[in-house]
């Protein structure tokens, strides 16, 4: 409910289930990871150099503000990665990162 984004169009798409920080969320097929998370949440991650949360800035792969983690696998740029069913996304590095990343 408390999401930052609002859907204005293209709502008749198949749902896609994923988790963010362990919580089950649902996006739609064709959503980017950024879209899917921010429809339910206010931010993607905490800034490393300040107290504020971050939620992307350019949405075109230029600012690198939207990198987040997965429970397994490499980090990803949320604005330019398509949501896939079963993704387990994290706002912070998992335990043991970066050694655990492939």
């Amino acid at each position: 409910m408390n999401g930052r984004l609002v859907r204005l169009a293209e709502t008749a798409r198949a749902p896609v289930a994923f988790t963010f920080d362990g919580e089950a969320l649902t996006g739609l097929e064709g959503d980017t990871v950024l879209t899917a998370i921010l429809l339910s949440r206010r931010g993607l991650r905490q800034a490393e150099f300040g107290p504020e949360p971050r939620a992307g800035f350019c949405l075109m792969g230029a600012c690198q503000d939207c990198w987040i983690w997965q429970e397994d696998g490499p980090r990803l740029r949320a604005c330019s990665t398509s949501l896939e069913a079963g993704m387990r996304l994290l706002s912070q590095a998992p335990q043991g990162w970066p050694e655990s990343a492939a």
Binding site: R4, F57, C58
Partner: peptide, 25 residues
């Protein structure tokens, strides 16, 4: 401008065109 919820104009246009979303209420 560093906080969540501040975007470039281009970002807002991309969100609308290629995702059908507004970046805020």
């Amino acid at each position: 401008w560093q906080g969540a919820g501040v975007y470039s104009l281009g970002a807002a246009q991309i969100a609308l065109k290629s995702q059908g979303v507004a970046l805020g209420r």
